[in-house]
């Protein structure tokens, strides 16, 4: 990384330490891994920038439902929302990874698709849609991928019941 430490954002708040940024987006570190926190509006533009910068491959895209965990640690200026979409990108030339965490409000779970830039995100976005109900605007084929087509609900949401069936011991002799 050439410009990890570059302070792209101007120091708007001189009293505090300016939050670290990368490509104009807030940057945090989690266990030594770089995490960017773009807003929904910044997301598409940031992806384009990153791809131009050598992050050619999308490794992973998944959703997280923070229904019961709004108090999680986020950089200042980012309001925690119920959903997050987490995108992992890799830069093969510099052997580096970047993680994007985008906050998605429950009321309007929509995010622009990464498909135009990263064709490999197709199945991942479908999976996220299937599991969390987060829609990806502009995705060519946003249908369920893992669950049956007529399934109701999105199973990985925290308010979706896990569907556990109490274990029965049918026909076991009980003559005690």
């Amino acid at each position: 990384m050439t410009d990890v430490d570059a302070q792209d954002g101007e120091a708007d708040t001189p009293t505090e330490i300016a939050p670290e940024t990368l490509f104009g987006t807030l940057l945090t570190r989690s266990h030594g891994q770089l995490v960017l926190h773009p807003t929904r509006e910044e997301y598409a533009g940031l992806l384009a920038t990153l791809q131009a910068d050598g992050y050619h491959s999308i490794i992973d895209l998944c959703g997280v439902d923070y229904l019961t965990n709004f108090s999680r640690e986020l950089p200042p200026g980012i309001t925690p929302e119920r959903f997050e979409v987490v995108v992992n990108l890799i830069n093969h030339r510099e052997h580096s990874r970047l993680r994007l965490r985008v906050q998605i409000p429950e009321s309007d779970p929509v995010l622009p698709t990464a498909f135009g830039l990263y064709a490999g995100s197709e199945a991942m976005e479908r999976e996220t849609f299937d599991m969390f109900g987060i829609a990806f605007e502009g995705h060519p084929d946003l249908t369920r991928i893992l669950m049956p087509e007529d399934w109701i609900g999105h199973p990985l949401r925290k308010d979706y019941d896990i569907g556990r069936i109490p274990v029965q011991f049918k026909g076991a002799p009980a003559n005690r």
Binding site: M147, P155, Y160, D161, G163, R164, I165, V167
Partner: peptide, 13 residues
């Protein structure tokens, strides 16, 4: 036989 350790929405028990 019984769903095994996957007692959840996805697997037929």
């Amino acid at each position: 036989s019984s769903g095994g350790m996957f007692n959840n929405y996805a697997i037929v028990q």
